[in-house]
Amino acid sequence: MGKTEDLSKDTRDKIVDLHKAGMGYRTIGKQLGEKTTTVGAIIRKWKKFKMTVNLPWTGALCKISPRGVLMILRKVRDQPRTTREDLVNDLKRAGTTVSMVTISDTLHRHGLKSCSARKVPLLKPAHVQARLKFAKDHLDVPEEAWEKIMWSDETKIELFGINSTPAVKHGGGNVMLWGCFSAKGAG
Score class of each variant (00 low, 15 high):
Asp86Phe: 03
Pro80Glu: 02
Thr96Glu: 15
Lys92Ser: 12
Gln79Ser: 14
Arg84Glu: 15
Lys92Asn: 10
Val101Leu: 14
Ser99Ile: 10
His108Met: 01
Arg74Glu: 08
Lys75Ala: 12
Pro80Ile: 00
His110Ser: 05
Leu87Met: 07
Asp90Gln: 11
Asp78Trp: 04
Asp105Lys: 08
Met100Phe: 01
His108Asn: 07
Arg93Pro: 08
Val98Pro: 00
Asp105Asn: 12
Asn89Ala: 13
Asp90Phe: 02
Pro80Leu: 03
Asp105Leu: 05
Pro80Thr: 06
Lys75Pro: 01
Arg77Glu: 15
Thr96Cys: 06
Asp86Cys: 14
Leu87Ile: 03
Asn89Phe: 12
Lys92Pro: 03
Leu73Tyr: 02
Thr96Phe: 02
Pro80Lys: 12
Arg74Gln: 04
Ala94Pro: 01
Met100Tyr: 09
Val98Arg: 04
Met100Lys: 15
Arg84Asn: 12
His108Gly: 04
Thr83Ser: 12
Lys92Val: 05
His108Glu: 05
Arg74Asp: 10
Val76Lys: 00
Thr102Tyr: 06
Arg109Glu: 06
Val76Ala: 00
Thr82Val: 06
Met100Ser: 14
Arg93Phe: 04
Thr97Pro: 07
Arg84Asp: 06
Thr83Ala: 07
Arg84Leu: 07
His110Asn: 01
Thr82Asn: 01
Thr83Ile: 08
Leu73Val: 03
Lys92Arg: 14
Lys75Trp: 08
Arg74Thr: 09
Ser104Trp: 09
Gln79Asp: 11
Asp90Cys: 10
Leu73Lys: 00
Arg93Thr: 09
Ser99Asn: 09
Gly95His: 10
Glu85Tyr: 07
Arg93Tyr: 07
